[in-house]
Amino acid sequence: MTERNVVSWTAIVVGYANVGDMDNATRMFVQMPERNLTSWNAMIGGLVGDMASARALFEKSPERDIIAWGALISGYAQNGQPNEAVKIFLEMESMNVKPDEYIMVSLMSVCAQVGSLDFAKWVDCYLCQSSIDKGQTHVIAALIDMNAKCGNMDRAKKLFEEMPKRDLISYCSMIQGLSIHGCAEEAVGLFNRMLNERLIPDEAAFTVILAACSRGGLVKEGSHYFETMKNKYSIVPSPDHYACMVDLLSRSGQLKAAFELLNSMPVEPHASAWGALLGACKLYGEVELGEVVARRLFELEPKNSGSYVLLSSIYAAAEQWQDFAIVRDKMRERV
């Protein structure tokens, strides 16, 4: 190329950013003799895995459009920083920049993370008063997910039932919302309705329904879905699926079955699954099994004081004071 202009420079920066090569994108961005809005936006959007850098670049940008604001809000939402996302949204609002549907979807995702009913109602009301097309599938799906997870189940159900065509995502949002808010049996009924509508559940859908069964103590239903997932849908259980089943069995007092399931796993179980079983050992006073489980946790997370505390509590409940003292000493040494 005999002459490079801002368009060609920007094309290279955007190309690198689109494939996630932010080192080269940054190198080219720094070398640019002049920068336009597109190059700034490409860099901000590409850096959302590192929100401190993305925010710093956003603050330096001489001009900000809806794409830049949206990239920052979406980035905070994806990185589990909902409070920062809300701050950016309110700052954007104060500058009379009107959000598009993509920013509102990100904001609803943020609200679902926070779980605030009042915030959900405010976002819902704001969206209804805006000019954004509320009939778009991704907007409706986000509305259902937000309202369900924040406990506004009547609103979520209304939106869900009014959908011209319900999909796996909308069903899972409703099932998860019902599960979170103590309606496990209703969640199971909705999952069965989904199957009757001939929708094919995926790994995520089975994680959602197994978690619902765990929260509700529905051992029979959870066991059925776990077997159905393997035998009918040929889905190999993931560590998350096993963790749900271990939690379900542990909560219902079937500690030996939970232990056997953990040992049958073809992959290393999550520490959280062992932790759920250890917590159940404390609840049901299972000293011998608690010792075995605790030793496994000490290997996986030697600096996690929670496992030591649980085992010492098991010993205390059984009035095994010498063992209690030994565990406490080990905790002080390692943690």
Score class of each variant (00 low, 15 high):
Asp202Met: 01
Leu90Met: 14
Arg27Asn: 07
Lys330Trp: 13
Tyr284Ile: 10
Glu301Asp: 06
Ala325Gly: 04
Gly49Ser: 12
Ile314Gln: 11
Asp323Thr: 00
Met163Phe: 11
Gln176Ala: 12
Phe119Asn: 02
Ile144Met: 01
Val30Ile: 15
Glu268Ser: 12
Val287Asp: 11
Glu260Met: 12
Ser179His: 00
Ala11Phe: 10
Asn79Asp: 00
Val139Trp: 10
Glu221Asn: 00
Cys281Ile: 07
Arg155Asp: 07
Ser305Leu: 09
Val139Cys: 12
Ser109Arg: 00
Glu93Trp: 06
Leu210Asn: 01
Cys244Leu: 04
Pro302His: 10
Ser170Tyr: 00
Ala212Gly: 01
Ala141Gly: 10
Val219Ile: 02
Arg166Glu: 07
Asp202Glu: 08
His270Arg: 14
Leu117Pro: 03
Arg4His: 11
Glu333His: 12
Ala205Pro: 04
Val267Leu: 13
Pro33Lys: 09
Met174Thr: 04
Glu186Leu: 02
Gly135His: 08
Met194His: 03
Ala141Asp: 12
Tyr76Gln: 02
Leu178His: 05
Ser313Cys: 11
Met43Gly: 02
Gly290Val: 10
Pro33Asp: 13
Met229Gly: 09
Ala212Thr: 03
Ala318Gln: 08
Ser131Pro: 00
Glu260Val: 09
His241Cys: 10
Val293Asp: 14
Ile314Tyr: 10
Trp9Pro: 05
Lys165Leu: 13
Thr207Ala: 13
Lys256Ser: 09
Ala148Val: 07
Tyr126His: 13
Ala187Gly: 01
Met95Leu: 14
Gly80Tyr: 02
Tyr16Pro: 02
Gly80Glu: 07
Lys282Arg: 15
Glu299Asp: 14
Leu255Gly: 09
Tyr76Thr: 00
Leu261Arg: 05
Ser179Gln: 08
Ala85His: 02
His224Val: 04
Leu90Glu: 13
Val105Cys: 07
Met1Lys: 10
Phe206Trp: 06
Glu319Gly: 00
Gln31Gly: 08
Ser305Asn: 09
Gln78Pro: 05
Met146Trp: 04
Lys121His: 11
Ser8Lys: 12
Arg193Trp: 05
Cys244Tyr: 05
Phe226Met: 00
Ala325Phe: 03
Ala243Lys: 02
Phe58Gly: 08
Asn96Met: 15
Leu218Glu: 02
Ser170Arg: 05
Ala280Met: 08
Arg296Gly: 01
Asp23Phe: 14
Asn18Arg: 15
Gly115Ile: 11
Glu161Pro: 03
Ala141Pro: 00
Glu161Gly: 00
Gly285Thr: 09
Ala142Thr: 00
Val246Pro: 06
Val19Lys: 15
Lys134Arg: 12
Arg215Asp: 07
Val97Phe: 14
Val292Leu: 15
Leu210Tyr: 01
Leu248Phe: 14
Ile175Trp: 12
Ala112Tyr: 12
Met32His: 09
Cys125Ala: 11
Pro62Gln: 05
Leu277Ile: 09
Leu300Tyr: 11
Gly151Lys: 04
Gly151Met: 01
Cys172Glu: 07
Val335Ile: 09
Ala318Leu: 05
Ala148Pro: 05
Leu297Ala: 06
Glu101Thr: 04
Thr228Lys: 11
Ser94Asn: 15
Ala25Met: 04
Glu186Phe: 02
Gly222Trp: 03
Ala71Tyr: 13
Asn79Lys: 13
Leu249Cys: 09
